[in-house]
Amino acid sequence: MDRISTSTTPQDRDEMSAPPAGDPADARRALPDQRAVTGMATATATAPAGATDPGRETAADRAGEPGTVRPDSAPAPDRRWHLWHLLPTPTGTPFTFGYALVLIATSLYAELGDPATVDSLLRASSTDVAHLTHTPVLALVGSALWVAGGLASPYALGFLVILTALERRIGGLRTAAVFVFGHVVASLATEIPVGVAVWAGHLPETSLHRLDFGISFGLMACVGALAGVLRITWLRWGLLGAVALVLLQDLIAYADPLTALGHPLALCLGLATWPVVRRWKAARAAPSYL
Rank of each mutant, 00 (worst) to 15 (best):
T106G: 00
L31S: 12
V246K: 03
S7W: 13
G171Y: 07
L108T: 02
R62T: 15
L83Y: 08
T133D: 09
D53V: 06
D33M: 03
A63C: 09
T93Q: 07
G142K: 06
S107H: 01
Y155F: 12
V161C: 06
A197W: 03
V37I: 14
A74R: 06
A49N: 11
L271M: 12
T233V: 10
R231D: 15
V137N: 06
P204G: 09
L188Y: 01
D212E: 07
L219N: 03
F97K: 00
L121K: 00
L245N: 01
H202F: 10
L230Q: 09
R279H: 15
H131Y: 04
S5R: 11
S143C: 10
V37S: 02
A156G: 05
V185Y: 01
R169H: 03
Q11H: 14
H131S: 02
D128N: 06
R62L: 15
F181A: 07
G241P: 02
G149T: 04
T233N: 05
V276W: 15
P275Y: 15
W84E: 15
G50A: 07
L247W: 05
S120H: 14
S17N: 13
L208P: 04
L188R: 00
L31G: 04
P71K: 07
H134G: 05
V141Y: 06
H209W: 06
P204V: 09
L87K: 02
A124K: 08
M40S: 12
S216K: 00
P48Y: 07
L247M: 12
G113A: 01
G39D: 15
D2Q: 13
F179W: 11
D14Y: 13
L235P: 01
A242I: 15
A286C: 02
T259R: 03
D128G: 05
V118Q: 06
G142S: 08
G270Q: 00
V37C: 07
S5P: 05
G270K: 00
A43V: 08
F179V: 11
D61P: 00
R210N: 10
T233P: 06
V129Q: 00
A177D: 02
S120P: 03
T96V: 15
L86P: 00
S73M: 14
L271N: 01
T93S: 08
A51D: 10
D72G: 03
A286P: 01
W280M: 04
V37E: 11
P19V: 11
D128R: 01
L151R: 02
R278A: 13
L132S: 04
A244Q: 08
G22L: 04
L122N: 01
R123Q: 13
A221H: 07
P115V: 13
A124T: 12
A285M: 14
A100Q: 10
L86C: 08
V118K: 02
M16F: 14
T38N: 13
T38H: 14
M220E: 12
V147T: 00
G50H: 05
I232Y: 14
C222S: 12
Y109C: 01
